[in-house]
Design a protein around this nucleic acid. Structure first.
Lengths: 215, 215
DNA sequence: TTCTGATGTATCGGTTCGATACATCGAGCT
DNA sequence: AGCTCGATGTATCGAACCGATACATCAGAA
């Protein structure tokens, strides 16, 4: 399974964790959850779903009619296959969340992992944030060296494009820095010695994530 | 030829417009020119190059030794195939620059087109900028409606991810707005009636492109 | 009624990626 | 000198992935 499909697998597991969904709805949610990047197509979604069923992470429910039993003609509705998470699937989800190789912080994967931070523990969150930050730092260095190498030899538009790209990455690093310090603040929180790190729900990051939110 | 490869074709034509290059160098430049997005692999580059040679847009030079004739052992150097633009290639380049379908402003293509704005005429520049802006506006609307639809039902991290994505697109729109007004300013420029729009180099947008550049 | 657009499942052809093989070179280490 | 190591360089292949499409139901508009 390729890198991109790995991200899709995690997204599916996470979205199905709360409630079963069928393919169409699932696709919409995945793609709005990760609104930034490129959308997954059905040609990727359905094969992935089938593979996950085969592996035992998902099960197919086929509700003849769930909610629309009220109408006058509630006859043989088109089969809407709802996918439901199996216990193995929940295990798999927890596994993918915690056991994060260094792949969790490249462009394709970071968004999905971040979206489910609420279900990961503080250590994992921190590791991924740090990893992502250093990845961006590399990209920043490449940008800067490319800019200084070719400075004055670029026409105005190309230069502006570079400048804009650089600025985008810089903003992203700043965003991560804010997130990281917010995490650190919520770790060092006193109030009850050692908040039972083995229990079910992690503390949930208090009210908000960020300290500042000026626009 | 797929959408992605179209962008690659334009990038190759543009980069080879000034000087011939070989594959390795070409790939580096393409990927740093468009540092923002995903990189092209050799598995895409070489087939594309061959296709372009077949179509007559490129020609292959094979310099036995160009610069390194100085060394003591200047024997049979490994063949470095330098690709050179043919007259048909230059035509093709101009064609792709000006004849822009509505595909020029999606994520994959916009960057390349923008990078070569210096060689396009003012009308083309404006059309692409406007098109890109309205595309982003659509994306913005999707984001906003998705946010308002699911507001309060999202956990803090997912919400933060959405917020950050939205903000990124907003900044991009603002960037485009600045570019657009800069273009308009440089069109309405007085100083010598009609600066000979048919001649070789378009006016080059004065000193910089942007008005402001605070930070 | 019929038409259109949203919902819904599913697959196929072709494009693109990631890994890899192979080869030369300069630089540093011992 | 020998040796490794990393950068440069061309090239290809299997696997992954996308975009388009087919097909079907249903709500609401015309």
């Amino acid at each position: 399974m390729g890198k991109r499909a790995d991200a899709l697998e995690l997204a599916i597991l996470g979205l199905l964790h709360d409630a079963p969904l069928h393919g169409y709805e699932l696709r919409k949610r995945v793609n709005s959850l990760l609104g930034w990047g490129r959308a997954f197509s059905y040609g990727t979604l359905y094969p992935t779903l089938k593979a996950m069923v085969r592996q035992g992470y998902l099960a197919e429910d086929e509700p003849v009619d769930t909610l629309v039993t009220t109408g006058p003609h509630r006859s043989g509705r088109r089969a809407r296959i709802a996918y439901r998470l199996t216990p193995e699937g929940k295990e798999r989800f927890a596994d993918l969340l915690a056991h994060t190789g260094p792949s969790a912080w490249d462009d394709e994967h970071f968004g999905v992992h971040f979206a489910f931070f609420g279900r990961a523990d503080a250590d994992t969150r921190m590791r991924i944030l740090i990893g992502r930050r250093s990845r961006l730092q590399e990209k920043l260095d490449q940008f800067r060296s490319a800019l200084s190498r070719t400075r004055e030899r670029l026409d105005a538009y190309t230069l502006e494009l570079q400048r804009h790209g650089l600025e985008s990455v810089e903003r992203e690093v700043k965003w991560l820095d804010d997130l990281i310090s917010a995490e650190q603040r919520s770790i060092g929180r006193p109030m009850g010695a050692t908040p039972t790190p083995g229990s079910g729900e992690p503390p949930a990051p208090s009210t908000g994530i960020e300290g500042e939110n000026g626009r």
